[in-house]
Amino acid sequence: MNETVNRLIETFRGIKSELESVGWYPVDAESTRWWGGAETPDEVIITAILVQQTRWDVVHEVLNRLRKLGLNTIESIANADPNYLAEVIKGVNYRFTKAQRLVKLARNITVIGGLERLRLKGDVRDFLLNQEGVGRETADSIMLFALNILTLPISQYTKRVFSRVLGINPGNDYDSWKRTLEDLIPRDLYTYKLVHASVITIGKKYCLPDNPLCDKCPLRDLCLYANGRR
């Protein structure tokens, strides 16, 4: 199993162009640019809320709009009127709800002293999960890509790709998957970001729920499911 995981990670290292085609930008381990080209941790957090049930291309357009208006920081969002923000983020799904949630989140982060203080908190995940609209995957994504905290987000793509490639199935429980994969994958910031970006990319482009494109998938030689279909 460990040998297969290592080969899997090496394959992920070789698909940089694939990752970039869907908005992941592998650079140095601590860069926020992994996350859709985000320029700051603030932008990671803002877009982590906006991208929920919304396409990344729409979020990129909205982020550029926020940048032009100076609304791409936690401080500026905290001081924004939610109704005005909802107009600015027009195009994202549930924009009025997301505007309210973003303002509340930004204000709560500001109250505790900003992102640096949040990064130092021993209960970062609990803090994030207590924010309206922040679920476990979003919380772990913010921790990994904005705060550089070693934690692995688990998406539906993660479950589908790893269950097919490795033949594992810890069940539907998020934390069971998280524990299983964090035990298997080397604990390294670059690797965690690479794995998350790669499984989402492969899940979107090849490892489809129905009629997966196994013959075109970069993991076809490693994948138990793909080999079983031959």
Rank of each mutant, 00 (worst) to 15 (best):
D57M: 05
V134H: 02
D57Y: 08
I112C: 03
Y84R: 14
D57F: 03
Y94N: 09
R95L: 03
E137K: 15
L69V: 07
T73R: 09
Q100H: 12
A80I: 04
P41G: 11
G70I: 12
G70P: 10
T32C: 10
V111Y: 11
K90C: 06
E132C: 13
E132L: 15
I45F: 08
E39A: 13
A139L: 11
R55C: 02
V92P: 02
D42E: 07
E87L: 14
I77G: 05
R107G: 05
D42Y: 03
T110L: 13
S76N: 15
E132V: 15
W35D: 02
G135H: 02
I109P: 00
T47N: 07
S31K: 12
D123V: 03
N93D: 03
I49F: 14
V88Q: 08
G133H: 00
L69A: 14
A78W: 03
G113E: 06
L69H: 10
V111P: 01
V62Q: 01
G91E: 00
L69W: 05
I112R: 01
Y84F: 14
R55Q: 14
E43I: 09
T138Y: 02
V134Q: 00
N64H: 15
V59F: 09
L102T: 04
E43K: 08
I46G: 11
A139W: 00
W35S: 02
W56D: 11
V92Y: 02
E39D: 12
G114A: 12
L69I: 09
Y84A: 12
N83D: 11
R65W: 09
E75D: 14
N64E: 15
E132M: 13
N130I: 02
Y84G: 05
I112Y: 03
R65G: 05
A29F: 08
A38P: 01
F96H: 14
L129Q: 05
V58K: 07
W56S: 10
R67V: 08
T138R: 01
I74P: 02
K98Q: 06
L50T: 01
A86Q: 05
A86C: 09
E87I: 04
I112T: 08
A86I: 06
E75Q: 10
A106V: 06
